[in-house]
Write a protein that binds this DNA or RNA. Structure first.
Lengths: 344, 344
DNA sequence: TTGTATGCGTTATCAA
DNA sequence: TTGATAACGCATACAA
């Protein structure tokens, strides 16, 4: 089947190519009856605008690039499962707003400033996470220099990013820890990163510290366990803590994957959750409700996130005002922190 | 910063624009020394080819569309987690092969035949799954009429698709069931679809039937439980089976999400896994090893799948020979089916 | 409200 | 090995 062009439609309809173009881009400068005729012929021939020609000619190309933080050393599971529903909602919502999405993994070798804007493949970029913000700083700065709009999820670094969107991590860390304290837990451990290279985890850590203070609990560095995103790390780290003889009765893990590892580690050592140790995670991965014990966690609203990201980037592209947004993270109580049971 | 064009590079280098274009597209028709000069200037200016101009002019646009099967009624989790690592690997591998990827959810309203090829947004389409193949048949047929190359994962329908790629579901279903029979299980239930609308699950079901026969076990329709992709369905269905008084000592669930629901349902009723009932799933989602009991399953190799899909579509696009491929599914034994424990 | 003419930044064809 | 020149299919300034 041959692909028809706007010239074909014009010839059949008996109008000029320009009028066809106008009719198809919903220009008001076209007679209703003419438009009807054009649209009907276009539909009959299954005509679609050549997106490349359109993008070449127009200033805006109505396309967003989504760059996903990925662990390329782990081909089995390169993308953090937290991002899955977010990607789904971004695809859905951006589609509704008329944006195409091109997706890519964050490659350290890439030159984002030119790979998208300069090659005119996208009007702007959404960064989903960023494993180590510091090491990418110069890339982001170059992106700013080039002038391409971009938004980043999670990382709160207004010094560098024109628009930062994420959950209110400090508040989330506070709520999680405060809940554990309210349950009477006195020796609450923090599992996760806390350095400035990982701003979103650092914030959760700061919330943890504030909650300890608010509850009158002393901070003990031995309860501060440095680990990152993997289940295995959580499992190993909790084992190490036990071997070191550190006493604890609760764990706030800065993400659910770590929390899952902690649950597994405790389980293997016969430590009961929540009777002996309460555990709260962060993210609310879909699997939390299927674990046993089911995992209490700070829920991040990925659907809202997707909307705010797409709207924010869209505003940047259109040169409208934007402002950073912190979405509230919400405590979801399940079995792993005692109290209510069988909830969800 | 202003975006440079090939004309700018030409002016600076003192050659014609045509030569610049040739140098940048690795044409052999250009003097080595000239090429060096051009590339160095291009690099200095951060020049990138305008992909829209290139795609407009050339026949092939080196872009694949990935259409993901999605449950749009479930905005919280529209994409099946099974696809996550596959998407990651597709992005990675297609990128290495020089293909752009545009991603979209399968919208029932879309006109795939023209939305991609006719709008020249992609050279071909990869379908990740398909909730109900029958209802989409006419769409696929139209796609064939239009001549756009496409590949589908999972569904084996050579009558319609030029290229079908998936796991060997029948063999997988057989192996899972045969393993349960080997453990001495006599009353093995099948959870999942079995109608022709869902070819990949039907095949798993057929493997189940064949294994029953091979083991000399009688087929009992009461052990044949119709349900689909959700954890909840698995949980509800196992409850229903128990209420109906159907005796069973094993479950082969046609996907891990169902199996997870089954585990939960059994757990709530105090039925022990694997002592009372053995459970085997299908997929090997990343969470299988974190459940308790950890879930035995038929592993689908998503990384191999990604390669085969991308290579297959690439071959279709280049008019080379293709042939359907069934990747072997591999039994992964974990706690839920007894036998070994603490494996993985 | 419509048509004419031009150009977006490439790749491809031809001639040199 | 290179340069001039013609498309690619559309959007838009301008004229009518």
């Amino acid at each position: 089947m041959k692909r028809p062009t706007s010239l074909d439609i014009a010839a059949i309809t008996g109008v000029s190519q320009a009028t066809v173009s106008r009719a198809l881009s919903h220009s008001p400068l076209v007679n209703d009856e003419t438009r009807e005729r054009i649209l009907s012929v276009a539909k009959q021939l299954h005509y679609k605008v050549d997106s490349n020609a359109r993008k070449l000619r127009s200033k805006k190309i109505h396309t967003m690039a989504v760059l996903i933080s990925a662990d390329l050393d782990n081909p089995q599971n390169p993308i953090n499962p937290f991002f899955l529903p977010m990607i789904g909602s971004i695809l859905q919502y951006a589609g509704e707003k008329g944006y195409d999405i091109i997706t890519s993994l964050q490659q350290p070798s890439d030159d984002w400033g030119t790979d998208y804007g300069f090659s005119r493949r996208a009007d702007g970029i959404i960064f989903l996470g960023c494993k180590d913000f510091e090491s990418y700083t110069h890339k982001f700065e170059y992106l700013n220099e080039v002038g391409d709009p971009w938004v980043v999820w999670g990382v709160n670094r207004p010094d560098c990013a024109r628009l930062c969107i994420g959950s209110d991590n400090e508040d989330g860390g506070f709520k999680a820890t405060a809940h554990l304290a309210r349950l009477g837990r006195k020796r609450i451990a923090y599992f996760g990163k806390s350095s400035k290279e990982h701003p979103e985890f650092r914030e959760r850590y700061e919330g943890y510290r504030r909650a300890l203070q608010a509850a009158g609990l002393e901070y003990d560095p031995r309860l501060h366990r440095d680990c990152f995103l993997e289940r295995e790390e959580g499992m190993n780290e909790v084992g190490r803590m036990i071997e070191e003889g550190v006493e604890f009765d609760a764990v706030f893990a800065s993400c659910d994957l770590l929390a899952m590892g902690v649950l597994q580690g405790l389980n293997r050592r016969g430590i009961r959750v929540p009777q002996d140790v309460s555990v709260v995670g962060f993210d609310d991965l879909w699997v939390c409700s299927s674990l046993s014990p089911s995992l209490s966690t700070m829920r991040q609203d990925t659907e809202a996130a997707a909307r705010v990201l797409v709207d924010g980037l869209s505003n940047l592209i259109e040169n409208e005002d934007v402002r950073d947004i912190r979405l509230p993270a919400q405590l979801v109580v399940r079995e792993s922190c005692g109290g209510l049971s069988r909830m969800n």
